[in-house]
Nucleic acid binder design. Sequence first.
RNA 1: GGUGGGGUGUCCGAGUGGCUAAAGGAGGCAGACUGUAAAUCUGUUGGCUGACGCCUACGUAGGUUCAAAUCCUACCCCCACCA
Length: 402
Amino acid sequence: MVPEEQLHILTQGAVDVVDEKELLAKLRQDRPLRIKYGADPSAPDLHLGHSVPLRRLRKFQDLGHQIVFIIGDFTGRIGDPSGRSKTRPILSEEQIKANAQTYAEQVGRILDVSRAEIHYNSEWFGPMLASDLLALASHYTIARILERDDFHRRIIGGIPISMLETMYPLVQAYDSAAIRADVEIGGTDQTFNFLVGRDIMRAYGQEPQVVMTWPLLVGLDGTEKMSKSLGNYVGIAEPPGEMFGKLMSIPDDLMPQYHRLLLHYSDEQVAELEASIASGTLHPREAKARLAEALTAQYHDAAAGCKARAEFDRVFSEGLLPSEMPGVAVTAEDLAAGGMRIVALVARAGFAPSNSEARRLVQQGAVTLGGTSVRDVNAQVTPQDGDVLQVGKRRFARVRRV
RNA sequence: GGUGGGGUGUCCGAGUGGCUAAAGGAGGCAGACUGUAAAUCUGUUGGCUGACGCCUACGUAGGUUCAAAUCCUACCCCCACCA
């Protein structure tokens, strides 16, 4: 494919490309470019937010370019107590290996991992001398590091920043030099780090990498960016039903963004979608269900998407029982005293982390056993084999007498 | 090194001796309603207990007191300014 065409495909939808001319020049060299993607070994659960740049990597791969994954194990082993509330956990070698493994498994759902290069940055940082690290630090200034939006805000807000954290951009930047990256891609939150990469590569006498960033996907809550720690995410390895249900919970006004970033809708297609919703030809719920089905199918298959939708309608629109549900075992011993306490049953099924919580659920009228609502906290129940225990709208279990 | 401010529940944040499992908000969960696990409204939100009640919790460790998140001592950590 001619370079100009490639450029068009690769940059479509990008927020920033620094610099497009450089990218075109690289494409004209008619060789596989080295595309860097940094992976965080402390968060191995990938979600739809990650899928945005990953899908772009796929395009690079399809065009014959070389993907290079960097697992940032070097910094991961140090840990860091600064920042907000969460201290970065110190990861052991085994943990990092295990995380990298699940990471690869998930990434494999989007692109061909067997054709990608994978590096741990401890490969070059491990043997590095303190003097070399100081030399790296000498290439950058405090003022420039503190330009980063996140640091800037923390200084204003009086939130601590550790020396180590100020080193992270340099470490990441050095990774680019170590693997001689041609292009680095990621979310817009990485813009600063990527740009430092360009400076550091120049300092080491290399041609600077091209930087490409894509919008951060907004999470299920409709305001914050999708992230695991905020719990507003859809994991790419989640089962179809979970995926579909979570997607149905996004606020309506998130639909255009999801179509654009996850289904690669063009601006015209998005406009068309919005118009048909506004005019009433397409019901918002229908639009969302189609979106959810399409995305579920993307990570599983068309049949799974279809089934997830049917199941969702069955349980939430028609109020019927799900076709499959986990079991909760009840022994004869449990019922020895003439029945078991409802609170114990709810806890047994794993629907409440404590008895107090189970009690609360019963009091709030959330618990149904065998089709009958149980509201008495002290109720003794005698669940029959096959009875369905329901807690809230979406948690079901079938009693198994053993 | 000096001076001043601060560390509270999942998070943010009020509280300066008892009425404090700790205001308020966010988040979570539940109920009603619905277009759905949307929006809105309402309730609820440490653990154990059938219940009276008990236990744990306000940076850490001690102390004063009938009684401490609140007072005292030491220590750890954070922020600002000065050097």
